[in-house]
């Protein structure tokens, strides 16, 4: 099914655990828009992201639908949803080089050489060409966060989920990484769902905000 960029529709989402409501929400996120969901830890922010991404543990009961670019992905396995996710930690795969991480994300197809050129060109275009052969563990926190975003983007997602992705960065790096993420998401017209407890994130995102 061909998708058209019409955004991420969270349609009457209601998630419960043992009869207790964890989170309830209904909102359409337009392409290029950032919806910020604020809440303290334990407020069900991560549960919401897990539901959208397809990782909700079976113990939860969820109703409502997740419609991405007109396609109902609610029942799809995570790997078919084309929903990119960034966590608090960059989670670069430690057994692969930076380039290996990016190649892992790039959809299958093309010769080995073509794929290599594509990935190094992509890194190059962000001025990070020299990081390709590096061991991810030797990168700075800010570099790791950027590579993690590039890895998500290479998989050609239709939406982006951010789980407090800036909270572990140093204060001076946080602003630039934040800008990097939001600008790229806007440029690619991705609907973004950001969960955070940091007001500065919400302010930088500039979109609508919901508090849990």
């Amino acid at each position: 099914m061909k998708r058209h960029a019409i955004g991420l529709d969270l349609n009457d989402v209601d998630i419960q655990l043992d009869g207790r409501r964890i989170v309830a929400l209904s909102h359409k996120i337009a392409p290029g828009e950032v919806l910020t969901v604020m809440g303290e830890s334990g407020s069900g922010k991560t549960t919401l992201l897990n539901f959208v991404a397809g990782f909700l543990p079976p113990a939860f009961d969820a109703t409502g639908r997740v419609v991405l670019d007109g396609v109902d992905v609610t029942a799809m396995p995570a790997e078919r949803r084309q929903v990119g996710m960034l966590f608090q930690d960059p989670l670069l795969f430690p057994h692969m080089s930076v380039e290996g991480n990016l190649l892992y994300a790039l959809p299958a197809g093309g010769s080995r050489a073509e794929r290599g050129t594509r990935v190094s060109g992509f890194l190059e275009s962000f001025g990070m060409g020299e990081l390709g052969p590096r061991d991810p563990a030797t990168l700075s926190g800010g570099q790791q966060a950027r590579v993690a975003l590039l890895r998500v983007l290479l998989a050609e997602p239709c939406a982006l989920l951010l789980d407090e992705p800036f909270s572990k960065l140093d204060a001076d790096r946080r602003d630039s990484v934040r800008k990097f993420v939001f600008e790229l998401a806007r440029e690619r017209q991705l609907p973004v769902l950001l969960v955070t407890h940091d007001r500065a994130d919400a302010a930088a995102a500039g979109g609508p905000m919901i508090t849990l």
């Binding site: 790997e79 966590f87 930690d89 989670l91 994300a105």
Partner: peptide, 10 residues
């Protein structure tokens, strides 16, 4: 979460 990342990458 490493596995979640991989799944999200398709």
């Amino acid at each position: 979460r490493y596995l979640s990342v991989a799944r999200s990458l398709g």
